[in-house]
């Protein structure tokens, strides 16, 4: 029996290779993951939040940042958020604490009641909005890393044990509330 000529397999493989190169994309999709609040129930009254627990972040149509009654740059936002949430000096103007029982962190943990309230104008640029979301996410990541280092010796992202991950998440939740959009349109 004569051997089958295999010279053309290379050509066939090349054709397939080129097909894949054309139809596919290399880019990895990444993004800031967020959960939207469920649709509003009109009968439900909005929860009353103590003013000291509210970290108000406003972005106006000129992309200016207004945080707790003063202007701020994006670069300062992360540290301000961290100070507000952790409130190490027990400042009465900053977030209150509540006791949460987390066995993995050695029983009672003083978790922050702080809620970040983010509000933007319809004229805010998307880039600015993402930068602000990113800074807020960074603040939370850094706080989680600090807590995780203190208790488990590694960064939060390096934790493998699901129980430990949940303990940290419970101690420092992602508490970002986005207000109902305001229809203030200015040009």
């Amino acid at each position: 029996m004569p051997e089958i000529n295999a010279t053309s397999t290379a050509d066939i493989a090349f054709i397939m290779l080129i097909f894949f190169l054309i139809t596919s994309t290399m880019d990895v999709d990444s993004g800031i993951m967020r959960r939207l609040p469920p649709p509003l129930d009109p009968t439900e009254q909005p929860e009353d939040i103590n003013k000291r627990n509210l970290f108000e972040v406003r972005i106006n149509a000129q992309d200016l940042l207004w945080v707790k009654g003063q202007y701020m740059t994006v670069a300062e936002l992360k540290d301000a958020t961290k100070v507000f949430i952790s409130n190490k000096s027990d400042d009465p103007n900053m977030s209150d604490k509540k006791e949460v029982n987390i066995p993995m962190l050695g029983g009672i943990y003083m978790a922050s009641r702080g809620i970040i309230s983010l509000k933007n104008d319809r004229g805010t640029s998307y880039n600015m909005y993402v930068q602000v979301q990113n800074e807020l996410a960074r603040a939370i990541t850094e706080l989680r890393n600090e807590l995780s280092k203190e208790h488990f010796g590694v960064n939060f992202s390096d934790l493998i044990d699901q129980e430990k991950i949940e303990a940290i998440q419970k101690a420092i939740p992602v508490a970002i509330s986005e207000a109902e959009p305001e229809n203030v349109e200015r040009n």
Partner: peptide, 9 residues
């Protein structure tokens, strides 16, 4: 009720 979103960046 599509609540999980990702701001692609």
């Amino acid at each position: 009720n599509a609540l999980k979103i990702s701001y692609s960046s």
